Amino acid sequence: LTVHVGNVTYHFDNPEQAEEWAKRMAKKYQGQIHVKDGQFRIE
């Protein structure tokens, strides 16, 4: 699973971990989480 934050990409084996990280990053950067094809993108 991949989480994109700006132009930085993080890889996770565990979906719960990826989702948790995406939520934390979205809160930190006050962005929206977009989920597409098993990838999380924070914008």
Rank of each mutant, 00 (worst) to 15 (best):
E20K: 12
E19W: 15
E20D: 12
Q30A: 10
E16C: 15
Q17K: 11
A18C: 08
K28R: 11
N7K: 11
H34Y: 11
V3M: 02
G6Y: 04
P15S: 11
Q17H: 10
D37P: 00
T9A: 12
F12P: 00
D37K: 02
Q30Y: 08
I33G: 02
F12Y: 01
Q30I: 06
A26V: 05
D13I: 06
A18Q: 03
A26D: 03
I42K: 05
L1F: 15
G38W: 02
K28S: 03
A26T: 02
H11P: 02
K23Q: 11
A26F: 05
I42T: 06
M25W: 05
W21L: 03
P15K: 13
V3E: 00
V8I: 12
T9R: 09
Y29T: 06
E20A: 12
Q30K: 13
V35F: 15
E20L: 07
A18Y: 06
G6P: 00
E16W: 10
L1Q: 07
G38D: 07
Q32L: 08
G31W: 12
K27V: 09
Y10L: 07
A18L: 09
F40W: 13
F40S: 08
H4M: 13
G31F: 12
P15G: 05
G6L: 07
A18W: 04
E43Y: 08
Q30R: 11
V3F: 03
G38V: 02
T2A: 09
Q39V: 06
I33W: 04
E20Q: 09
T9K: 08
E19Q: 09
A18T: 01
K36M: 12
Q30D: 11
A18M: 06
N7P: 05
R41V: 15
G38S: 02
K27Q: 11
H11N: 05
T9F: 08
K27I: 12
I33P: 02
V3R: 01
V3H: 01
G6R: 05
Q39H: 14
M25V: 08
L1Y: 15
V5A: 06
A22W: 06
V8Q: 11
G38N: 07
K27A: 13
V35L: 09
R41M: 14
E16T: 11
A22K: 01
E19Y: 15
V5K: 01
A26Y: 04
N14D: 14
E16P: 01
E19L: 15
T2Y: 10
E16I: 11
N7C: 15
Y29W: 09
F12W: 01
H4N: 05
G6H: 13
N14W: 06
N7S: 11
N14K: 09
H11C: 15
K23Y: 07
Y10I: 07
Q32R: 08
L1T: 14
K36T: 13
T2H: 12
T9P: 03
K28E: 10
K28L: 14
H11Y: 13
Y10D: 01
D37T: 01
D37A: 00
N14R: 05
A22I: 09
I42G: 07
V35R: 04
Y29L: 13
H11M: 06
L1R: 12
A26S: 05
E43R: 05
N14A: 07
R24G: 06
E19F: 15
K36N: 07
G6A: 05
V5C: 15
H4R: 14
Q39E: 14
N7R: 10
I33M: 05
M25A: 03
V35Q: 05
G6C: 15
G31Y: 06
I33C: 14
R41P: 09
V8N: 08
V5G: 01
M25C: 04
D13H: 04
D37M: 00
M25L: 10
E16Q: 12
K23S: 06
R24F: 12
V35I: 13
I33R: 01
Q39C: 15
Y10C: 14
R24W: 09
D37Y: 00
D13E: 11
E43A: 09
K23R: 11
Q30G: 15
Y10A: 02
V3W: 01
Y10Q: 02
M25K: 01
R41S: 13
E16L: 12
P15L: 14
E16V: 12
Q30F: 08
T9M: 10
T2N: 05
K28A: 06
G38F: 04
W21A: 05
I42E: 07
I42P: 07
A18N: 00
A22H: 02
Q17I: 08
N14S: 12
R24V: 13
L1G: 13
Q17L: 13
N7Y: 09
V3P: 00
R24A: 14
K27T: 10
N7T: 10
R41Q: 14
